[in-house]
Simulated assay, not measured.
Amino acid sequence: MDTGVVMQAPLFAALDSETAEQLVLSMSTQEFAKGKEIFHEGDPGDSLYVITHGKVKLGRRSPDGRESLLSVLGPGEMFGELSLFDPGPRLTSATTVNDTILIALHNEDLRTFISRHPEVAMQMLAGLARRLRRTNEGLSDLVFTDVPGRVAKALLDLSARFGQPYKSGVRVTHDLTQEELAQLVGASRETVNKALADFAARGWLVLGAKSVTLLDTGRLVRRAR
């Protein structure tokens, strides 16, 4: 386990290294193959998870079967923490994008830990606030930003979390299908593919299999506004 990556999670940010390591040791490690569901929308919310390796997608399904991809999370990010502050059924489904390793902590154990380290609650609330802010920005984008702008913004967000320097650009291995990328943007696959093809034709990026290499982030930033 990459302890340095784990310590990036808001759960550990307020702790000294010794206390954080003790908490990690009290958590259970769980491994999931690609495409496995960790929990389903409506399931009881009884645990918090921190990703140590791989990616997890959070989504919802409408009554008529349509799917919406809300976010993609990677190493050092956590999910499932909402049930700690608001006990109830899960609001989303969590599914692995690729082979994934998580560490999990049951809510009862986490409440006991927070009672001894109340500063952790503030860090977790800050993490929830950041996710809420991203959600609100996404809702605003659906109303005020066209599809190419939303595509550019999604690519920049994925780059900030999963990008790696590559030749003259930034390689982003997002591991998403074309349909999942379209769900993340909130548009049809055809419209998103058209925007990606246009960006590629302009020389802003190079498309790959479940990846993209950003060559001109400045142009994408301007297009995302």
Rank of each mutant, 00 (worst) to 15 (best):
M1R: 10
T3E: 09
M7Y: 05
A9N: 08
P10R: 02
A14Q: 07
L15K: 06
E21M: 10
L25C: 04
T29H: 06
Q30Y: 00
E31N: 11
A33V: 02
K36I: 00
I38Q: 12
I38A: 11
E41C: 13
D43M: 04
G54L: 06
V56Q: 05
K57L: 11
L58G: 06
R61T: 11
R61A: 05
S62K: 15
D64P: 03
D64C: 01
G65N: 11
S68Y: 09
L73N: 12
G76T: 04
E81Y: 13
F85Q: 03
F85R: 06
D86H: 15
G88Q: 10
L91K: 14
T92Y: 09
A94K: 01
T95H: 06
T95G: 05
N98L: 09
D99H: 14
I101P: 02
I101M: 08
L102A: 04
I103V: 09
L105P: 06
D109F: 08
P118I: 00
E119F: 10
A121N: 05
Q123S: 15
Q123N: 13
G127V: 01
G138A: 01
G138D: 02
V147L: 03
G149K: 07
V151C: 05
K153M: 08
K153R: 15
L155S: 04
D157Y: 08
D157C: 04
S159V: 03
S159M: 14
A160H: 06
R161P: 03
R161A: 10
G163A: 09
Q164M: 13
Y166F: 15
K167Y: 08
R171Y: 04
V172E: 00
V172G: 02
T173M: 12
D175V: 01
T177W: 11
Q178D: 14
E179H: 15
E179I: 07
E180W: 08
L181Q: 01
V185W: 08
V185P: 14
G186I: 02
S188V: 00
E190N: 12
T191G: 00
T191P: 14
A195V: 01
L196A: 04
F199D: 03
G203H: 05
L207E: 04
A209V: 12
K210T: 01
S211V: 00
L215W: 06
T217Q: 13
V221Y: 10
R225H: 12
